[in-house]
Simulated scan of single mutants.
Amino acid sequence: MWYVYFLELANGDIYVGYVGSTPDLKRRFASHMKGQVLSTKAHAPMKLRSYVAVETEFRARELERYFKSGSGKAVARKRFL
């Protein structure tokens, strides 16, 4: 099982926020909170707003790319945030 997840940054930014994918959601979120992820290091503490579980890494990466696009952000705001 793979997860595509949405983080709310410390400044309350969920409009852009952060979208990622991982097979181990607990470990990955912990690494975000510890400041071990360069792209979110300056924005801790953060909240895990939502996630989607999918079967394959390929599908997770595909969804992550989509949710980072303009139309994907709009869908994510309506459905997950």
Rank of each mutant, 00 (worst) to 15 (best):
A74W: 10
A74K: 10
L63Q: 09
Q36G: 12
E55G: 07
Y18N: 11
M46P: 13
W2V: 04
K68A: 05
R77N: 00
K73Q: 02
S50N: 11
K34R: 08
A76P: 05
V37Q: 09
L7R: 11
R65S: 14
K26D: 05
G12N: 12
Y5D: 08
Y5T: 07
F6D: 01
Y5A: 00
Y15E: 11
S21Y: 14
T22S: 09
A76R: 00
L9Q: 15
K68W: 06
S50I: 03
H32R: 08
L38C: 12
S50M: 04
S50W: 04
W2I: 01
K68D: 06
L48I: 10
A53C: 08
S50Y: 05
W2F: 08
F29L: 02
G12C: 10
G12Y: 09
K78M: 01
K78N: 01
E8P: 04
F29H: 15
S21N: 13
A74S: 09
A42R: 04
S69A: 03
L38P: 14
F67G: 08
A44K: 11
R28L: 07
Y3M: 02
Y18H: 14
V54G: 05
G35L: 08
K73S: 00
E64P: 15
G35E: 06
G17S: 10
R27G: 07
Y3G: 02
S39Y: 10
V37K: 04
A30L: 14
F58P: 04
F80T: 00
D24K: 10
S71R: 15
F29W: 10
F58A: 01
Y66C: 07
T56F: 02
M1V: 05
R79S: 02
F67L: 14
E62P: 14
S31V: 10
K47L: 03
A76H: 00
A44R: 15
R61A: 04
R65G: 07
E57K: 06
L7H: 03
K34I: 09
S21R: 08
K68Q: 14
E62V: 13
L9D: 06
P23F: 06
Q36D: 07
K41V: 09
S31F: 13
A42V: 09
K47M: 08
F6M: 00
K68V: 06
L25M: 06
V54P: 13
A60W: 01
R79N: 02
E8K: 14
G12Q: 09
F67N: 06
K34D: 03
A76Y: 02
F29S: 01
S21D: 13
P45S: 12
R59E: 03
H32L: 12
A76K: 01
L38R: 13
W2P: 12
T22R: 02
E62D: 07
F67S: 05
E8R: 11
L7D: 10
A10P: 15
V54S: 10
W2K: 13
R59T: 01
A10R: 14
V37I: 13
F58D: 01
L9I: 11
V19F: 09
H43A: 11
G70C: 09
A76E: 00
W2A: 02
E57V: 00
S31L: 10
